[in-house]
């Protein structure tokens, strides 16, 4: 692991390294080195398995964070390559040429976050939302409750409780 990190450091400009567990390391890199880095990891370091590609919305920093989680099936450890991209012009280089299934992840991200991956096959096709015409629903500025109330005919009289408070009241009605 150490030598691997050294190898990476000698070749790519790394922003930060977080050792989550002995077999899981997150590496923060700049946008332009992300795809070269995972290519390197796949081809030279045996990280042949892409576990997932996911995104998180850092709305406060006006950025999306993409995580490519790779796995080395021989030596049984994972590396997450994290890259921040701008929220305004949310585009990222496609990586479908490395693993075909990346295209599917990218399609999902396009639909749910609005992150574009130019060149990825079928990236514009609807993934699970058919005909979605609002803000991408996983963006944190999308108000799902309001959307649901506007769209799905909420049944009047439905109450909502904080589960902890509700159970406390129900089980220990005497306590304050």
């Amino acid at each position: 692991m150490k030598s691997l990190l050294n190898n990476i450091k000698s070749r790519f400009s790394i922003k930060d390294v977080t050792e989550q567990r002995s077999n899981l390391v997150f590496i923060d890199v700049a946008r332009e080195s992300a795809v070269p880095l995972i290519t390197y990891l796949r081809d030279y370091e045996g990280m042949t398995h892409l576990v997932l590609l996911t995104a998180a919305d850092w709305i406060e920093e006006n950025e999306f964070q993409l995580t490519y989680l790779l796995n080395n099936p021989e030596q049984k450890f994972d590396i997450g390559v994290r890259v921040r991209i701008s929220r305004e012009k949310a585009t990222m280089e496609t990586a479908h040429h490395l693993w075909e299934q990346v295209a599917t992840y990218q399609r999902e991200l396009k639909e749910m976050f609005g992150i574009d991956f130019p060149g990825s096959p079928g990236v514009d096709k609807p993934f699970i939302l058919e005909g979605w015409d609002d803000l991408p629903p996983y963006r944190r500025d999308f108000d799902t409750k309001k959307y649901s109330e506007d769209t799905y005919f909420p049944r009047p009289g439905r109450e909502s409780n904080d589960p902890a408070e509700y159970m406390k009241k129900k089980m220990y009605p005497n306590e304050k």
């Binding site: 999308f142 799902t144 649901s148 109330e149 799905y152 005919f153 049944r155």
Partner: peptide, 19 residues
């Protein structure tokens, strides 16, 4: 199916089947 249940505020599931 009655009122959306635990998915009542989901952007993607309906709340009332009888509509």
């Amino acid at each position: 199916t009655i009122n959306g249940g635990m998915y009542w505020d989901s952007y993607n599931t309906i709340n009332r089947l009888d509509h």
